[in-house]
Amino acid sequence: MTVNADSQAVAAQATWRDLPAAQQPEYPDPEALRSVVAELESYPPLVFAGECDQLRVRMAAVAKGEAFLLQGGDCAEAFDAVGAEHIRAKLKTLLQMGAVLTYAASVPVVKVGRIAGQYSKPRSKPTETRDGVTLPTYRGDSVNGFDFTEAARIPDPERLKRMYHASASTLNLVRAFTTGGYADLRQVHAWNQDFVKSSPSGQRYEQLAREIDNALHFMRACGTDPEEFKTVEFYASHEALLLDYESALTRVDSRTGELYDVSGHMVWIGERTRQLDHAHIEFASRIRNPIGIKLGPTTTAEDALQYIERLDPDREPGRLTFIVRMGADKVRDKLPELVEKVTASGATVAWVTDPMHGNTFEA
């Protein structure tokens, strides 16, 4: 019997199924999940392998200190927020920030949205209790509903298909905005948000926007009006939390035979799922996307070096990003040793701060 090479490659990335996987939903109907996964495996890619390679090149520049990474978006996306106004507002803010950073720092700014896939939430507790009633926690729109009812909180695999379609709609709109004129640098004034027009920060932005406009006018007067000013590279990222979904959207690149998770350009592993002998690290080790790992205050230098060995054995700049999530009270004590030991190992990783998690209290 002969086996298709693509099938063999995809089967190879499913080795994560033999390992413990934290933060996965407990679906009441395994057969329904298998049916959904099979359907997702037939869907078109949301992003392309070549785009992931391009981001890896951009992240290599970030890791070498030759570019700056701007990454932002929602803590968790919601299905009912997939609309033109909501997506345009997020994109406008990132474009606005990117223009200011590029002008002020005089280095390229790599723009990555936490968007088109961030529909899942890791949770510290499997259940929550209100007024004596205990139900499963809300794990994001990709898993269950926010309403505190028994029916809403049951994990439903059909939501994985809704996540795919919501992500596809979002990416379609983002691509239209970033290539259709909205991202033109000459729009820097139009990007200003109404709510800051009369504020000191809004006035500072307007002053900087005028300076950028003057620089653009000077370049045009000199006969230079690059196409790069009219469009923008914008990449999508999310936490690769639900492995059934991420695995179903893993494809073999026809150019190279390598595996890519085509649910997003960059995916990361969270603080609660970064166990070295668990499924998320195994999954990430099999794909060629740029990979991030969140490092919390318990991370040791030895942990960081083992992540490099598993995920970046060839020491490829742009492959691995360490997302530091330690808190202001611990980062000064914890981070320097990690940077020192990682640098000494010969790895060139991007170091990124993580403001994109909820600093909340339990009510």
Rank of each mutant, 00 (worst) to 15 (best):
F195H: 15
P155I: 04
D314C: 14
V262K: 03
E340M: 04
N289Y: 07
D333H: 14
T299S: 14
L173G: 00
K121M: 02
R114M: 03
K334E: 09
Y164V: 09
V57R: 15
L40I: 05
N192S: 12
R251D: 09
T127W: 07
L241H: 11
D329C: 04
H280M: 05
Q96L: 04
D329H: 12
L249W: 08
I212V: 15
A215P: 06
L40Y: 07
A67R: 07
A67V: 08
V174E: 01
H217R: 15
A12E: 13
A61S: 12
Q187F: 01
A78W: 00
K294S: 04
Y164G: 09
T137N: 15
E258N: 13
D141N: 15
I293E: 06
A363R: 09
D253T: 03
A328R: 09
D6N: 15
T360N: 05
T2D: 12
Q207R: 15
Q71T: 00
E77N: 02
I212S: 14
F148C: 13
Q54C: 04
A61H: 14
Y138R: 11
E51D: 13
E228Y: 07
L276N: 11
H238Y: 03
V100M: 07
R159V: 08
E227Q: 14
P157A: 05
K330I: 01
K121T: 03
R220H: 07
T321C: 13
A328Y: 01
N214Q: 15
E362K: 11
D184Q: 04
G72L: 01
P44A: 09
D18V: 02
F68N: 02
F322D: 10
L40H: 05
M356F: 00
V82E: 00
G98R: 04
A350V: 10
D141A: 13
A99N: 00
N144H: 13
A11M: 11
G50P: 02
A22T: 04
R123E: 10
A105H: 06
A236C: 10
R325F: 01
S169A: 14
L185V: 05
A9G: 03
Y235E: 07
Y119S: 09
Y138L: 12
A236H: 03
K341A: 02
E233M: 12
A347E: 11
Y307A: 11
V100N: 00
Y138T: 05
R17N: 02
Y119W: 10
R123G: 08
F229T: 14
P317I: 11
E337Q: 09
K64V: 06
D329Y: 02
V36K: 00
V188N: 13
M219P: 06
G72D: 01
D333S: 14
V188G: 08
Y43W: 09
L173Y: 15
E239P: 06
S199G: 08
D213M: 13
L216T: 12
E158Q: 10
W16A: 06
H238N: 05
V267P: 00
G202S: 08
D74R: 03
N192C: 07
S42Y: 02
H165W: 12
A209W: 12
D18A: 07
D80W: 03
E150F: 13
E66V: 00
R56N: 10
A49K: 02
G292T: 03
S142G: 12
Q23D: 01
P136I: 14
R130P: 02
P155K: 05
D303V: 05
A49E: 09
D329N: 11
G73N: 09
V100F: 03
V143R: 11
A104Q: 11
R251E: 12
R139S: 14
T231Y: 01
P30Q: 10
F361S: 04
M97R: 00
C75Q: 06
